[in-house]
């Protein structure tokens, strides 16, 4: 068994939480090597080298990797990657983009969104928006696994891995990067926050969403949203929680003006404690909430913000 983890690095910046949790999942099978491919690897590789259970950090530095575009990333790295028996990546937009492409190149099926590493060939993953959990056994020569990181903790920073530069021949891309419009925020990251406050269609407008943001800031929380809230333009797309958005499992999830459709629940039902505020006592969100308040959010949320 030889295990590789693809570190997620966006324009030189390590996605530390996601990568660390992926290492944690991979380490269930043994020590791992980590692939650090980016335009700037100094900081990222130093951080990766400290992560427990990492043996080698393989460094490939080139502007080509700045945005981890699927074609250049997988074509350039395929030789390195295919010398491993197990390749893990976070089930983030990075992992979901590159890992199946690598699968197509190697003629190997990808095992997406793994919630549990059971053995070296057996994995558990949610299907049907988390309405069922499936255990699958892979017969492929290489196992390609994307990890549902909300199921794993980060690894401690007690390691001292070797950092090695790898020679490679860069392959030019079929796609060209034009621009990023990234949301910047001082709030904690949605996928790693201890507390998340999410708003739904009930919030009514982009301006009203400030009520949600206000409570979130008071609690030191990240802000989330339902698809309806994002589609209606109340909140940016990267706030969406659910089957097709982000999967979160904070200590506390506060759902405000969200009905609780299965596709939304898929992204938050593993939260430790769920609190729901909805004016409709029949809303399905109350069936999963530990604590519910049947009230008008415009009255309740500002008052809660004042009192907490």
């Amino acid at each position: 068994m030889k295990i590789l983890v693809l570190a997620e690095i966006n324009d030189g910046e390590l996605a530390e939480d996601q990568t660390s949790k992926t290492i944690s999942a991979a380490a269930k099978l043994g020590k791992v090597d980590v692939l650090c491919a980016s335009n700037q690897c100094t900081d990222a590789s130093a951080k990766l080298a400290k992560m427990e259970n990492v043996e080698n950090v393989l460094v490939l530095e080139d502007v080509l990797f700045a945005q981890s575009l699927a074609e250049s990333y997988s074509e350039t790295l395929i030789d390195t990657i295919s010398s491993y028996s197990h390749v893990f990546a976070p089930s983030s937009s990075f992992g979901k983009n590159v890992l199946p492409r690598i699968g197509g190149m190697l003629d190997v099926m990808v095992i997406s969104d793994v919630s549990k590493v059971i053995s070296e060939d057996t994995f558990e993953r949610p299907v049907y928006a988390g309405n069922a959990m499936q255990t699958v056994q892979s017969i492929d020569k290489v196992k390609l696994i994307s990890v549902r990181t909300s199921n794993y903790d980060t690894v401690p920073l007690t390691g001292a891995a070797n950092v090695k530069k790898i020679d490679f021949e860069s392959n030019n891309s079929l796609t060209t990067f034009i621009e990023n419009k990234m949301q910047t925020s001082d709030r904690p990251e949605l996928t790693s926050a201890k507390v998340v406050v999410s708003g739904g269609r009930g919030v009514g407008s982009k301006e009203n969403f400030e009520i949600i943001e206000g409570l979130a800031d008071k609690l030191g929380a990240a802000v989330g949203a339902s698809r309806a809230a994002v589609d209606s333009g109340f909140a940016p797309n990267d706030w969406q929680v659910g089957q097709t958005g982000k999967v979160v499992a904070p200590d506390l999830y506060v759902a405000v003006g969200i009905s609780g459709a299965i596709q939304h629940l898929a992204g938050m039902k593993d939260s430790k404690v769920i609190v729901a505020i909805n004016k409709d006592e029949e809303a399905p969100i109350f069936q999963v909430a530990d604590f519910g308040l049947v009230d008008d959010l415009f009255k309740a949320v500002p008052e809660i913000e004042k009192k907490v």
């Binding site: 983030s92 990075f94 797309n237 982000k246």
Partner: peptide, 11 residues
């Protein structure tokens, strides 16, 4: 639609 926001590419 990527985790951090929006990315534009030419394919």
């Amino acid at each position: 639609e990527v985790d951090g926001g929006l990315q534009t590419i030419d394919a």
